[in-house]
Structure formats: C-alpha cells, structure tokens
Computed example of a mutant assay.
Amino acid sequence: MNFTTFLFYAFATILVLASLRVITARNPVHAALFLVLAFFQAAGIWMLLKAEFLSIVLVLVYVGAVMVLFLFVVMMIDIDLDKLRAGFWNYLPVASIVGGVIVLEMAAVIWRAFPSNGGAVVPEAANTIGQTKALGLLIYTEYILAFEIAAVVLLVAIVAAVALTLRKRKDTKHFDPADAVRVKRNDRLKIVKMDATVHAPVAPVETKEAP
C-alpha cells in the first residue's frame, strides 16, 4: 500500500464517520460542523483523483459560503430541539428504504462506469479529467449554451430571493432604502426659535421653631 492509497482510505473513513454524525448529532450546530468536515474529506479525495477544480469548488462554495450561512442561521434563530427530535424513530423504516434504494442506484452507476477493458483507463482521458483548463475549454466551447442557461437560472433565483425578502409584511417594520438616500438636512433637523423664559423668584420657606 502506497501513501496515496493510505490517504484515500483515511479520507474515506473520516468522510463516512462524519456523514453518520451529521444525521445522528443532536445539536444542529454540531451536525453542521460535521458536514463541513465531510466536505473537506470529499475535497481531499477529489484532489487525490487529480480533479483539483472540483476540490476547490467544493471547499469555496459549500464550505466557504453555504455552510457558513447555514451556521449563522442556526445560531441566530431559536430552534426547538425537542420538536425536531419528535417522531424521529417513526420515520426510520421509510428512511431506511429510501437510503437502500439510493445505495443500490449508486452501486449500479459505479458498476457500469468501469470500463470493460480490464479496468484500464485511457491515458488521454486520465490526463484531462478534472483539470481546470480542460473543463474551461469544454464549458466555453461545446457547452456554452448550457452554461449561459444555468447562469440565467441562477440570476433569476437571486432576483427572486431578493424580491421575497423585500415584500411588505404586517408583523415587521418596512424600511425603504431609497427614502433614506433622498433625505435632506432640513427634513431631519428643524430649528425652532423660542422666547427666553424668566424664572420667578423662589419664596423663602418659613420654618417653625419647636416649643
């Protein structure tokens, strides 16, 4: 066993354990942190397979953006853990069946993905799998239309998310940034002239002597 094979088994073992802890951890913050660990191990496996672009994208997009946002949301809102755990074991049979079907489908895909020539990989394909240059050439030449459609779909999703957050609700205070930008000094400050007030003299307090 060489060092690369040892790293693969180490990354794979930690990935499986971290994935199990994601679904078994009682604290949502701990589950999110285990998911971050699982993403890092998957990125390490991609790097061992010489797919450096996929590895970097996995770390930057999922760990650097999605999971950080998820952690902020989990830590800022008040989550009722007892309500989340309620009925967990009731869904276990259905979850087991769905998980088994997914495992069988992935096994079938992986089994059919192996080449029929004794497991040998074509050298030309092995030298270009996962490389940033080869992927960029494919995206901007052969798959340019699909890439532009995906970009438009993502743009529409961003605009829709912003529009949903800007909707007016009765239980929240609405703030219009345009009104704040157009505000002037005279709208915020008003100088009022008032006549000077004269304080009346205070009469001395008479004190009675004790008999």
Rank of each mutant, 00 (worst) to 15 (best):
L92A: 14
L104C: 12
P123K: 07
A120N: 08
L20T: 01
V152R: 03
V156E: 05
I102R: 13
T13A: 05
T172I: 07
K50N: 11
M75P: 00
V36Y: 04
L92W: 09
K193C: 06
S19E: 08
I14N: 01
G118Y: 07
R169T: 10
D195M: 08
V109P: 00
V59Q: 00
P211G: 02
L137I: 11
S55C: 07
N186E: 15
A180K: 08
A134H: 04
G100C: 13
V192C: 04
T165N: 14
Y91W: 13
A12G: 01
F70W: 08
R182N: 11
A38P: 00
I139D: 02
W46R: 08
S96K: 12
L71G: 02
V57E: 06
N27I: 03
L17I: 12
F147N: 01
V22K: 01
A10L: 14
S116V: 04
V122G: 07
W111E: 09
V36I: 11
I191L: 12
L92F: 12
R188Y: 10
L17H: 05
F88Q: 13
F88T: 14
A120G: 02
V152G: 03
Y9N: 06
R182E: 12
A113E: 04
S19W: 05
F3C: 09
A51W: 02
R112A: 10
T13E: 01
A163W: 15
L166G: 05
V98D: 07
